[in-house]
Nucleic acid binder design. Sequence first.
DNA 1: CCTACATATGAATAAATGTTCAGATGTCAG
DNA 2: CTGACATCTGAACATTTATTCATATGTAGG
Lengths: 138, 138
Amino acid sequence: MAREAIDECGVNLVDPDKVDLVRRALPSDHDIAELADVFSLLGDPGRLRLLTSLLEGGELCVCDLAATTAMSESAVSHALRLLRAHRVVSVSRRGRMAYYRLDDAHVRMLLDLGLTHTGHTIAVHPERTDSAQKDNVR
Amino acid sequence: MAREAIDECGVNLVDPDKVDLVRRALPSDHDIAELADVFSLLGDPGRLRLLTSLLEGGELCVCDLAATTAMSESAVSHALRLLRAHRVVSVSRRGRMAYYRLDDAHVRMLLDLGLTHTGHTIAVHPERTDSAQKDNVR
DNA sequence: CCTACATATGAATAAATGTTCAGATGTCAG
DNA sequence: CTGACATCTGAACATTTATTCATATGTAGG
């Protein structure tokens, strides 16, 4: 018979030892929330195009970002504000323009890793081989 | 004066060359959507705890997952369904129990990279990475 | 100053999302 | 068969979230 035990909260567990082990290994609620936030930021197509654009282009102004992402300038501005609040992008203003750039190494790596495995698209720093043009997946 | 140009859609651009370059480098809409989906899946604290538990524990049943994640069993089940639909986790049923495990190398890497940079928590056992969990089911 | 322009912001709307509750399915023990 | 148990599912609900529209801020040039 499978051994069963009681959690401190009164819940039945199947493998209490493993549960305990896992519990101890899990990040704190705060860290989990923070990480979830980061992933969430990357979890929107618009922001993802935005960030990928910055990853590629290095530094772009709002109107150019609107062009590369096919979003309205207002939507871009809102999105950038969010990303700015999370320190994912940074701005430098010159004249009436605002130039944004990716400014978070962690996010850059996640983006990079994500892009590497999605649709075989070579989006990052490789040589300019325009081989991968059509990606119809699968 | 900054040179300006007209996009095919009739939008004013500041650096049309760079815009074009970035545009070409961006993944297809489909790939972007897919990647956003993956990040989105990781963007919820509950699912993140769920996946981290599986990353740590290797294989756990629903009730134990409910314990490690502090979610109701129903919430866990719903979340697992979503993850299952995206092939991120897989199930093996034994008796009336359902044992889940992480079954997506891409997600495993993203998780790993994410955890590495969040709160210094060392969550992964290097020696166990992906070869030690090779008992396939079904 | 005044106009044109780039970007930012707030409020409102619409859509997607996570959780809970109640009940369904399927499995094991007696 | 029957009752207990683990998990699954659907519907309802509450929240969050992204977009749009209108307007504000701020800069440059005439």
